[in-house]
C-alpha cells in the first residue's frame, strides 16, 4: 500500500504549476469540461521553466511576510531543517491537524527546538482562508507558535507545486527538498494516522540518515489560488 502511495504521489509532482496557464488560456469550456480561470498572472506562468520539482532539488527560495508583517526568507534559515505546512485555516484537513487532533502541536513539541516550522497560506485575496486577520485568529485559536506566511500571489505555492492544504515539505540543512507529501497516513478529516511521515523523516534527518519515504501523496483541500 505504501508503495502505491508513493507512486501516486509522483503524478502530483509532475503536474507542474505552469500547466495552469495553458489550461486557462484555452477558449471557453464546453459543457462538462469545467475550467476555473486562473488569476491574471496566468500568462506569466506559462513562460516559467516547466521543470518539475523533485526530492533532492534546491528548495525554491521565498521571502514572505507573516501575519504580523515580519519578513521570512528560506535563505535566512540556511543550515537549519525547515518544515513547511501549506495552510488554510478553513480547510477541514488543516482543522484536523490543528484543532481536532494534536498532530501539529505534537510535532512542534517534539522537534521545535531543532527544526524551524513555517506555515504558508497561498489563498488568493478574497478566497477561502485568506488575509492576515483570519490567519491571526487561527494562530491565536489554535495556539500556533510558529509564523503563518501569506503568499497571496500564490507564486511560492506554485513554485513548490503545492496543490493541497495541508501539504508538508521538509527542507534539509543544505536547503534541499527532503520530504514532500502528506503529514500522515490517514487521508480523512477526523483523526490522526498511524504513521506520521513528517516525524519519521525528521527522525531520519536528525540522525544523519537519508529519508526512507521522501514522497507520499498529499491529501486535503485544493489550494485556493
Amino acid at each position: 500500500m505504501k508503495q502505491l502511495w508513493s507512486l501516486v504521489a509522483v503524478a502530483a509532482i509532475a503536474m507542474s504549476a505552469s500547466v495552469v496557464a495553458q489550461e486557462g488560456a484555452k477558449p471557453a469550456a464546453k459543457p462538462g469540461e469545467k475550467q476555473v480561470q486562473p488569476a491574471q498572472d496566468g500568462k506569466k506562468d506559462a513562460k516559467k521553466d516547466k521543470a518539475e520539482l523533485k526530492i533532492g532539488d534546491k528548495a525554491p527560495e521565498f521571502s514572505l511576510k507573516d501575519t504580523e508583517g515580519k519578513e521570512h526568507s528560506l535563505s535566512s534559515l540556511s543550515g537549519k531543517i525547515v518544515v513547511l505546512e501549506w495552510f488554510n485555516p478553513d480547510c477541514p484537513f488543516v482543522v484536523k491537524q490543528h484543532e481536532k487532533t494534536s498532530v501539529m502541536a505534537d510535532l512542534v513539541k517534539k522537534y521545535g527546538d531543532k527544526v524551524t516550522f513555517l506555515a504558508i497560506n497561498s489563498s488568493a485575496p478574497g478566497k477561502q482562508g485568506s488575509g492576515a486577520e483570519r490567519n491571526t485568529k487561527a494562530k491565536t485559536d489554535w495556539k500556533i507558535d510558529f509564523p503563518i506566511l501569506l503568499d497571496e500571489t500564490g507564486e511560492v505555492g506554485k513554485s513548490y507545486q503545492s496543490k493541497n492544504t495541508p501539504t508538508m515539505y521538509i527542507v534539509d540543512a543544505k536547503g534541499n527538498l527532503a520530504y514532500w507529501g502528506a503529514i500522515d497516513d490517514d487521508s480523512g478529516a477526523e483523526k490522526a494516522g498511524k504513521t506520521n511521515y513528517v516525524a519519521k523523516a525528521l527522525d531520519e534527518l536528525l540522525a544523519g540518515k537519508p529519508v526512507s519515504q521522501s514522497k507520499t501523496k498529499p491529501y486535503g483541500c485544493n489550494v485556493k489560488y
Binding site: V20, E23, G24, K34, V36, P38, S162, Y225
Partner: peptide, 14 residues
Amino acid sequence: PERLVEPGGILNHI
C-alpha cells in the same frame, strides 16, 4: 466523472 481544472494546475475528476 467530469474533469475540473482549477488554478494552480489542480486537476480533479468530479
